[in-house]
């Protein structure tokens, strides 16, 4: 299923989204300078950068939600985008269940129950949106983004509010999306661990592209060490093995 959108005759997977030397200015300040980003079908691209590096701004520009002052963003014709914004607050004054929230994006379509079950959030469907915890909100936003069968999923800090087990689960979930649906994923995070694991390509951003390439390549560049300090590569990844797992309600159950 992966790379199902490869153009016949060409060796490369199809380009879904391409930004060429885009700059974004807001209130007289240059937030992004001459940034190039390309996302191919079935690819996981991650953007990492310190606070204030313009990561969210870059995503919004790539999605076409804010204008660029230089350069151009091109989408493949008919590209369907799924977007998980960094923050979404639904006031308790708006009565809305999770099921309804998901249906807003694709009226008339049933919610993606199977995927929800995989992410352990199918029990949330009847809950009011304003009562969700941070981690639950993240999962629900992801489900809404998936409800329109996107070609490209754009995630802004998807790991925030997740514990280590949750991060691991999200990684597995994203991998499954890519393998089974040929989905491309573009995500932003300041969590080095989350970004490095499972990415095909990493873009290191600090208002401009500092460096980009495979995770191992990027990790070896002096620019990366300058931004994230010497200690990051030595930190290692915490491996965590469970002999049990949890139901969505928190009960312990045997590993399947």
């Amino acid at each position: 299923m992966a790379f199902s959108k490869v153009k016949i005759g060409s060796g490369d997977p199809e380009v879904l989204l391409a930004a060429r030397t885009i700059s974004v200015r807001q209130g007289g300040e240059l937030l992004l300078r001459a940034v190039d980003v390309t996302v191919h079908a079935g690819e996981i691209v991650t953007i990492i950068g310190p606070n204030g590096a313009g990561k969210s701004t870059l995503l919004e520009a790539l999605l076409g939600l804010i204008p660029v002052c230089h350069g151009a963003v091109e989408h493949k014709p008919g590209l369907v985008l799924g977007y998980v914004p960094q923050r979404l607050r639904i006031d308790s004054v708006l009565p809305m269940t999770v099921a309804r929230f998901i249906a807003l994006s694709a009226p008339g379509c049933p919610p993606p129950v199977e995927w929800m079950a995989r992410l352990g959030c199918d029990h949330l469907l009847d809950r009011p949106m304003h009562a969700l915890s941070g981690g639950e909100m993240q999962r629900v936003l992801l489900m809404r983004a998936l409800s329109r069968n996107p070609d490209l999923l754009v995630l802004d800090e998807p790991a925030q509010g997740l514990d280590l087990a949750g991060e691991e689960q999200l990684h597995g979930f994203m991998d499954g999306l890519r393998r089974e649906r040929g989905l491309a994923i573009l995500l932003v995070s300041h969590n080095v661990h989350f970004v490095m694991a499972g990415a095909d390509r990493v873009i290191c951003l600090n208002r401009h592209v500092c460096c980009s390439g495979s995770p191992t390549m990027v990790r070896a560049t002096p620019e990366f060490r300058l931004l994230f300090g010497e200690h990051i590569p030595a930190m290692g990844f915490y491996q965590h093995h469970h002999d049990h797992c949890h139901t969505p309600r928190g009960e312990v159950k045997e590993m399947p």
Partner: peptide, 17 residues
């Protein structure tokens, strides 16, 4: 109606819809 409720929740998400 659906458009209005959608953009009341989040204008960016609505724009992508």
């Amino acid at each position: 109606w659906n458009d209005w409720v959608n953009m009341t929740v989040h204008e960016g998400l609505a724009a992508l819809d």
